[in-house]
């Protein structure tokens, strides 16, 4: 297993050197993956025919032919993605702003509720600002999912919006349950108003989970 590891590193190092200075792009990432696995298989074949690992590695590389055309091709793609990076950073800034705004709105909701609670106003009024937690939660969900991280690609905007809607509905169901429950003092009213939005929210959520694709990089 140790031997596999070192061969893996060797092939990856070779490809990283070959494509050194080429702008990062999804296509470059994919091409390197493709070349890595195919090269490894070729090296294994050479080894089966009696070559040592070092010899097999060198032979596999040199028999590939002139890869400069492919490198140039990737360099062009990399240039395009540098232009895209401007857009990406814009989307990222919006997402960052969303995260901050979402958290602030939630804090505002919680603190207002706490304040009202200690002002000894009727309990019904205390639950009112809970709506801020609902709104903040939805914004937070969207901003979190629409963000590209080191390991995951950003979710597309429509799916992220639907996730935000699902979370919003579920939070809203809790909000209506507490406020209607507190207002009437009846548990069955709380549950009945809870379930409408909760079921809708869970429905959207399940639909999203079953249709999801892998965003791992």
């Amino acid at each position: 297993m140790k031997r596999n590891r070192s061969l893996d590193d060797k092939v990856r190092n070779y490809l990283n050197r070959l494509f050194a200075g080429v702008g990062e792009s999804q296509q470059l990432f994919d091409l390197k993956e493709e070349l890595t696995i195919n090269l490894k298989e070729k090296i294994r074949d050479y080894e089966k025919h009696g070559m040592g690992e070092e010899e097999a590695f060198k032979e596999a590389i040199s028999s590939m032919g002139d890869l400069s055309g492919l490198v140039d091709d990737m360099r062009e793609v990399g240039k395009d993605s540098a232009r895209e990076a401007v857009y990406t950073s814009m989307a990222e800034r919006i997402s960052t702003a969303g995260l901050i705004v979402g958290i602030l709105i939630i804090l505002f909701g919680i603190l207002t509720m706490a304040m009202l609670y200690f002002m000894e106003v009727p309990l019904v009024s205390v639950t009112g600002p809970g709506i801020f937690i609902v709104i903040g939660g939805a914004i937070l969900t969207y901003s979190f999912l629409a963000r590209e991280t080191k390991n995951k690609y950003a979710m597309n905007k429509i799916r992220a919006t639907l996730y935000a809607l699902a979370v919003g509905l579920i939070l809203f169901s809790l909000y209506t349950a507490t406020s209607s429950g507190v207002a009437t003092g009846e548990m069955f009213i709380a549950i009945s108003s809870f379930m409408v939005f909760f079921i809708a929210g869970v429905g959207v959520f399940l639909g999203l989970i079953f249709t999801g694709s892998n965003r791992n990089k």
Partner: peptide, 27 residues
């Protein structure tokens, strides 16, 4: 098929008379 397999298939189809370089293949 995938890259290396296609590479080998070309050699086989030509009865080991011709090898298409991988560089050409991936391009």
């Amino acid at each position: 098929s995938y890259g290396y397999q296609i590479f080998k298939t070309i050699i086989d189809l030509s009865n080991q008379q011709y090898e298409l370089k991988e560089a050409t293949l991936y391009t």
